[in-house]
Design a protein around this nucleic acid. Structure first.
Lengths: 194, 194
DNA sequence: CGAAGTGATGTGACTTGGTAACGTCACCGT
DNA sequence: ACGGTGACGTTACCAAGTCACATCACTTCG
């Protein structure tokens, strides 16, 4: 038989994400409806909400993975590592997953988010979540507060700044390198606060 | 005549805020509808949305005032002040506006926000806005990036942490004192990052 | 081999947040 | 006395999100 004639096409989630990003870039976030996204993906509104808790979340799927990655890397770093060294190691683990072929997609995503307040709100919230995951992991290593949260927040800040640079560039500088460099600059700037 | 029989009661905005906070604490944020808020305030849904852009914003009204306060205080601080000193001065100006009779109200607000994800999202976003206002003001003083944003974020972090302590307490420690103290602790913790 | 179950999807009805067009009426200045 | 103006109400509407229930390929087990 040519195909076993499955009832549905596979990868519904991925199709929804692609449809959403496409429509958002074409018509803007506000102008595109969840119904529209689902239709383009060959699905319905209800199915969309089975995969994502709300319309915004379709752009932030997979952040839980990032949280786990960061937390595991911190837990796995040697006991001799300082808080910032553990954070740097975690960022290495995270940035390693951003291969260069995702750069263009990342840039489109960034543009969509930059054009919409609701999405910026969610993006900021997700950043806090990543920092929180690192903070918890640091605390489990015995790092006291507020040292743990300061280290985590500094690291996330470095990652975010570097991500913006990376997604805008055509040169082949890896996100991992940009992140390490940005983190160094932030550490240097800390000395100029007072 | 007994009264000039005004067409509407005054202070519609304030009545809406009070009605909202009351209902949120009574039944929770999700369970209360904008219609319900407006009715308790003797108004209608449309009028609610004339005063606030969305349901959440009723809990965060007045943050623009805070942004202005911070920015003006930073602009007014002496040229000799370091970035962190300017930030500390701005926080003094802000915390001075939180008289102790608002403490209980603040505590209720904090509880409502802590119980709801959407509200936490908005709260975090507002914090970023406050930090942004200070960052801009610092840049206008010639403070380079990323020093400006680091100082601003540290200051907002101190304010937020202190606000949580303040709203939970029954003793009479002023928010201004708590904030200064928290900021000092954060500065000390910065030295332990590496 | 057939029957019962499972899981991802569709359908339709509903609630609520949010917008927009239009109407009302006290107040204010001229 | 008269024509704004501003704050509010009314109505109708759209889109986000929820829910109960139906469907049907695929699986499993007797």
């Amino acid at each position: 038989m040519l195909s076993s004639m499955a009832r549905w096409e596979p990868n519904a989630r991925e199709r929804l994400v692609r449809a959403a990003v496409d429509l958002f870039t074409e018509q803007g976030y506000d102008a595109t409806t969840v119904n529209g996204i689902a239709e383009r993906a060959g699905l319905t509104k209800t199915t969309f909400f089975r995969h994502f808790p709300d319309k915004r979340e379709v752009l932030f799927a997979g952040q839980e993975t990032h949280s786990r990655l960061l937390a595991e890397a911190i837990a796995a770093s040697p006991d001799s590592a300082t808080p910032l060294q553990a954070v740097a190691a975690a960022l290495d683990a995270l940035t390693a997953t951003f291969t260069d072929d995702r750069r263009e997609f990342a840039a489109r995503l960034r543009t969509v988010i930059a054009d919409n307040g609701e999405l910026q709100e969610r993006a900021v919230f997700k950043r806090i979540g990543l920092a929180g995951a690192m903070t918890d992991a640091l605390r489990k290593r015995g790092v006291p507060d507020p040292t743990a949260s300061l280290a985590a927040e500094l690291g996330i800040r470095a990652f975010h700044d570097a991500f913006d640079l990376w997604s805008d560039r055509t040169d082949q500088q890896a996100l991992a390198d940009l992140t390490r460099q940005t983190l160094d600059e932030l550490r240097a700037a800390m000395a100029t606060l007072d």
